Simulated assay, not measured.
Amino acid sequence: MALVDRQRVATSSAAGDSRRSVRFFNGSAFERAFAGLCLAAALFVLLILGGFFVSLTIGAWPALAKFGPAFVWTTTWNPVTGVFGALPAIAGTLITSAIAIVIAVPLAFAIAIFITQLAPEWLRQPLGVAIELLAAIPSIIYGMWGLFVFAPVFRTFVQAPIIALFDNVPVLSSIFSGPAIGIGMATAGVVLAIMILPFIAAVMRDVIATVPKRLKESGYAIGATDWEVARAIIIPNCAGGLTGAVFLGLGRALGETMAVTFIIGNANRITANIFAPSNTIASTIANEFQEAYTDMHSSALIALGLLLFVITFIVLALARLMLKRISS
């Protein structure tokens, strides 16, 4: 029966596609014009995406031709000697984004569950509006707040105690080491987490709201707790959407510029200490592009932008593959 049902669905889908194709070619002039306009808009997006890639490749070609693939894993970035390597910026980008995702995802999921499942009716709308307003704050405001307000608090109440706690612990003493200066990769990661939290929470809230109410009520009817309903009913039914929300936040974290530039310290080095200053691809471009006085320096910065473009594309491609696997 299941096979027959699938065959019927496939036949119905094929018939629907055929009818849409016939309507596209044989419909009225207005319908054809509307369909052509929609097609042009879709192709325009692909054209813009291809234009970005081509322009970045052309601008980055002198640096890529000179340094080759070694540009990706070279650690030296010296505009004076004309030697450029992207590894410190890549490492800083990935580390700060990973910190942000680890912090933001559990909080966003808890917020979404609270708004959709636990909050009273009079509180759901104000909380939803607050999340959307938090997402609308410009990134430079986050950066200024992080530098002047959060960094001193983080230094005094988080960095200093953790450094003292793990001072003589093997391995951890190298990950959490001093001095406590407030700015660094950990600070940037926490501020990024605060920035991407409303985006992830808002998408998760909308996704969880699509779960049929009868499924959740059936769970409560057999005595399941809120956590059991979330684990056994909500997550399996909207795993794809929840995963998409996580990757949406990750994409935002990877490309963030101004907030990270304020608080990461902008030191071109690779270190295991997450409290130490570092830089990211976006912060390096923002700091140096106006001061790039040689063509090779400018080309290297554009090559960093191309790498960020490729990294973001890979992340989104992995997200699509994961969503496809979850759906299947």
Rank of each mutant, 00 (worst) to 15 (best):
Q7S: 14
Q7P: 07
Q7K: 14
T11P: 05
T11W: 11
S12C: 11
S13C: 12
S13P: 04
A15Y: 14
R19C: 09
R20T: 11
S21R: 15
F24V: 14
A29E: 14
A35T: 12
A35H: 13
G36A: 13
L37T: 12
C38Y: 09
L39C: 10
A41N: 06
A42E: 13
F44K: 05
V45Q: 11
G51L: 08
F52Q: 14
S55W: 06
G59L: 13
P62N: 06
G68W: 04
W73V: 14
T74H: 04
T75Y: 00
T76Y: 03
T76A: 15
T76N: 13
P88R: 06
A89N: 07
I95N: 02
T96V: 12
I99M: 02
A100G: 07
A104S: 15
V105G: 02
P106S: 02
I113R: 08
P120T: 09
Q125G: 11
P126H: 05
A130V: 15
E132K: 11
L133G: 02
S139M: 04
Y142E: 02
G143C: 05
V149H: 04
R155K: 15
T156W: 09
F157T: 12
V158W: 00
Q159T: 08
A160C: 06
I162L: 15
A164P: 07
V169G: 10
L172A: 14
S174N: 15
S174Q: 14
A180P: 03
I183C: 00
I183A: 02
G184R: 02
G189L: 01
A193Y: 00
I194M: 13
M195E: 02
F199A: 03
I200K: 02
A201E: 01
V203Y: 05
V203K: 08
I208T: 07
P212M: 04
P212H: 09
L215T: 04
G219Y: 02
G223W: 06
T225H: 09
V229M: 01
R231E: 10
P236W: 03
P236G: 05
C238V: 15
L242K: 03
T243R: 03
T243N: 08
V246T: 12
L248F: 09
G251Q: 05
A253K: 03
A253Y: 03
G255V: 07
V260G: 05
F262D: 04
I270M: 09
T271P: 07
A272H: 08
A276Y: 03
P277C: 00
I281E: 05
I281A: 08
A282I: 07
F289M: 13
Q290F: 08
E291A: 13
E291T: 14
D295I: 10
M296N: 03
A303W: 00
G305F: 01
L308Y: 03
F309C: 11
V310P: 09
I314T: 09
I314C: 11
V315K: 10
A317W: 11
R320M: 10
M322Y: 07
I326R: 03
